[in-house]
Nucleic acid binder design. Structure first.
Lengths: 194, 194
DNA sequence: CCTACCGATCGGTAGG
DNA sequence: CCTACCGATCGGTAGG
């Protein structure tokens, strides 16, 4: 019981931070706010974390990792590009759904990371985007997709996926498979040759 | 010459703020940073503005106004829903293109507005979104668009429009009509019946 | 538009 | 995990 019910302090700090950063933004959330939410003194936070930015770092890179993990099956698959793309979209939506608060922080506050971590973050994100670029490129070469600008399309695709965190409430029972399916349908229809 | 070359201080402050808020976010930009950029003492800012939030207020509501102005022709038009939607999209993209910095602030930092202005902002935004909802609803009833969830579709639509500010550089000569056309093509193709 | 300055709050440390 | 506290910085005002 202890293990599942009593979260360790560090987890507790991170989860409270995810929620507060999402609500007010990283810069506008103070360590005092955060400590108060947890019910300890501000200075006590530093027994568990090194700095405010470390929390942001933890959140951003954990989500990045989730994205890579979730898309792994797709990258090794040999299916056609449209099927792969749909699967990649559903995976992406699933990560957002399962980490709505953390994703919001990842999405909105990553720029408050400082170097060298910032560059690391940016290149991880680019790497992830490249997986999608690759799928689209492949579909283009196979003639499955109409001619289009890949970079532009990928960014449009992500932008229509990434707002979804507004939609998912922790209590919500919306189905990522359904939403991802609808979304990729809406997108693929405009992208499929015929 | 004086009128066009020498901007009054208030304009200068607002423009510098748009750029800095966009770059670092509203909360992370200090009035001292802002004053330094302009080359005056921090206290001197207050001869021209009442508060930091007033600047944010000015930016956000000016952009809101631009959006309403730009879509006016569309709302009074009697064309079919798909044509109206495309025009609305192009107008929207045009506003973003002509106000990239200010739009970024409008889009990312509106939540730092405080009441009662915050509620006013939210309802203005809803009103604008309702114009798009209306067009889609109409196209739905006319059978031009496939059956779909209007609210979901409008949000997806906006999300794929609103990331465009990352794209537009002040020096850039990208054509909003082209981009808006492409985008609405990509979207409409998935939305048109057949 | 400046000098001088306010009280509040910031992230964080020392030392226990 | 707390008390006590640091220097830095915040938005903003008084008064000229």
């Amino acid at each position: 019981m202890a293990d599942t019910v009593t979260k360790d302090r560090k987890t507790q700090i991170t989860e409270a931070a995810q929620n507060m950063f999402r609500e007010k933004g990283y810069s506008a959330t103070s360590m005092r706010d955060l400590a108060a939410r947890i019910g300890i003194e501000p200075a006590s936070l530093y027994s568990h974390i090194r700095s405010k930015e470390e929390i942001l770092h933890t959140i951003c890179f954990r989500i990045a990792e989730e994205f890579f993990k979730s898309i792994k099956d797709v990258t090794t698959s040999t299916e056609s590009a449209d099927i792969k793309l749909e699967k990649a979209i559903v995976s992406h939506v699933e990560v957002i759904k399962n980490n709505a608060d953390a994703f919001a922080v990842f999405y909105n506050d990553w720029r408050h990371l400082s170097e060298p971590v910032l560059s690391e973050f940016i290149s991880a994100r680019r790497e992830y985007e490249n997986i999608f670029r690759g799928i689209i490129q492949e579909g283009l070469e196979d003639g499955i997709f109409k001619p289009m600008d890949v970079k532009f399309t990928v960014l449009t695709l992500f932008s229509s996926l990434n707002w979804l965190y507004h939609w998912f409430k922790p209590s919500g029972k919306m189905n990522p498979k359904e939403i991802g399916g609808n979304l990729s349908n809406m997108i693929l229809y405009g992208m499929m040759n015929k």
